[in-house]
């Protein structure tokens, strides 16, 4: 079972933070190759694991840099807008140890929101958090 483990003293204060990469899916990559277009390299990204979020969220900055087009639309509630329309994009998350997940995630405007790993990704995994040891692991 592909997995990774992170030990970090800041788990208690900052939460479960993962340094990862975000890139295009294999389906996107195949389409770009077929159309003789450049496949963008995965971008470094920092996530917070959030079991309270039903969907994973990244900022549009990453989407623009990857050159992706929307594959879905949804409405989310934010502090300033209870019914904000957001687009969904197909991406691949590449975690430590080359653990990968791909699917559609929500992109939000601006770069003020922390990128989140929500239960849509966690639904395919086993998350173990050993609080007294400041350690967590994610297995897919």
């Amino acid at each position: 079972m592909p997995s990774f483990t992170i030990s970090n003293e800041s788990c208690k204060n900052k939460g479960l933070i993962v340094s990862a990469h975000v890139g295009v899916t294999d389906a996107t990559e195949a389409a770009l190759h077929r159309d003789n277009l450049l496949v963008p390299a995965p971008l470094p990204i920092e996530f917070k694991i959030d079991t309270g979020a039903d969907r994973s969220v990244i900022t549009e900055t990453y989407i623009k840099r990857l050159g992706l087009k929307p594959v879905g639309s949804c409405n989310i509630a934010t502090a300033s807008d209870p019914d904000m329309q957001c687009f969904e994009y197909a991406v691949r998350f590449i975690f430590p140890n080359n653990v990968a997940w791909q699917g559609a995630v929500i992109a939000t405007p601006g770069n003020q929101i922390t990128c989140l790993i929500g239960r849509d990704v966690l639904a395919y995994s086993v998350l173990v958090y050993i609080g007294y040891n400041n350690t967590f692991s994610l297995s897919f």
Binding site: T28, A31, L32, R34, D35, L37, G67, L68, K69, P70, V71, G72, S73, E88, A104
Partner: peptide
């Protein structure tokens, strides 16, 4: 290809 489409 890499154009907008909807999956819902």
């Amino acid at each position: 290809g890499n154009v907008p489409f909807l999956v819902k």
